[in-house]
Design a protein around this nucleic acid. Structure first.
Lengths: 168, 168
DNA sequence: CTAAACTTTCAGTAATAATTGAAAGTATAG
DNA sequence: CTATACTTTCAATTATTACTGAAAGTTTAG
């Protein structure tokens, strides 16, 4: 396998993985492309490399910036904007975790806490079962949330070494 | 908020969360419905409760069984099949983790390991950068994979208490 | 100020994914 | 065996999401 084949396959694989995780294919591919690029790339570069339109490239670069996975880079004497990806995988994982915590875990916790307040009749099986599930979920999602907090404060080698030591 | 409102909101919320995670809305809703149901439900019940078609109900129940989140229950003297969800949240999390590990982590590891073998010229910056990213990712995904193994062998209270104690 | 170089937006279109419902398939009671 | 009750499949349809490209917007050099 030569470099171009390997590169193409990596971008493809990352794109597929992205879509399995609810991230659109192009965004994951743009991310993959920037991850392996030694230099920042312009919108033009991304359009050419991935054969996508200007609009698509622009929107996905923007989204990646919103996810805090990329930043704009200015080259003196050049009016084009360039984009550079965060390369540290642990840092990437933390930023994604932080964002998903905020966008998904926290809102769900809020809803679950509201549902606990619902006006229920504990003599009814359906109500009991509902409440039991909500309580269990709230507890579990709360622990997930706290675990992400641990991860956000941790450094990589410590985090995994602690976690993996436990298996022995 | 009364019971029906709470129930509807829970099913809705779970459906939305599902789609953010690449799981189709109906499947997540069927799961939610069964999670809070004190009794197993038939395909008919699911169709009515969620106002979806027979085909849709059938396919999603089937998929949930494939994910090992639900099982068929036979009621003596009744020809209809009933479905019952696993209720233990920790057990649900483990089964999902196990499945995603198999479907996503392991294939990605395989690809990354192949890409490491690609025929590269280490004097080129692009190749160096590619290899560095692939190696870092392989390392990280490998640790994730191992971490899931830890989780699969662990029991809930131990797992979280160990993890959360670390924050203090 | 103005033209050129660039970036962003977004209506229209294309691609993908989910859903329906009826027909085909299967199992069981009698 | 066969009629009935149920389950599964899948082609056609509908809904959702992503993408394009040209027009509008913005910035900067001169």
């Amino acid at each position: 396998m030569n470099f171009n084949q390997a590169k193409t396959q990596f971008i493809q694989t990352w794109g597929t993985l992205g879509s399995e995780w609810g991230i659109n294919r192009s965004m994951a591919q743009v991310h993959a492309l920037l991850l392996i690029s030694p230099e920042p790339l312009s919108t033009e570069n991304v359009m050419e490399e991935l054969s996508i339109s200007r609009g698509n490239a622009n929107m996905n670069l923007r989204d990646l910036i919103n996810w805090n996975l990329m930043s704009k880079v200015l080259v003196p004497g050049d009016r084009q904007e360039y984009f550079e990806a965060e390369k540290d995988i642990w840092e990437i994982a933390r930023r994604i975790a932080k964002e998903r915590k905020k966008r998904e875990l926290e809102p769900v916790l809020k809803v679950l806490d509201q549902l606990k307040q619902a006006d229920l009749d504990k003599s009814l099986k359906t109500h009991q079962s509902f409440l039991a599930t909500i309580n269990d979920l709230d507890d579990f999602v709360g622990k997930m949330d706290k675990s992400v907090e641990v991860m956000l404060k941790a450094d990589e080698s410590w985090f995994f070494s602690t976690l993996l030591k436990l298996i022995k």
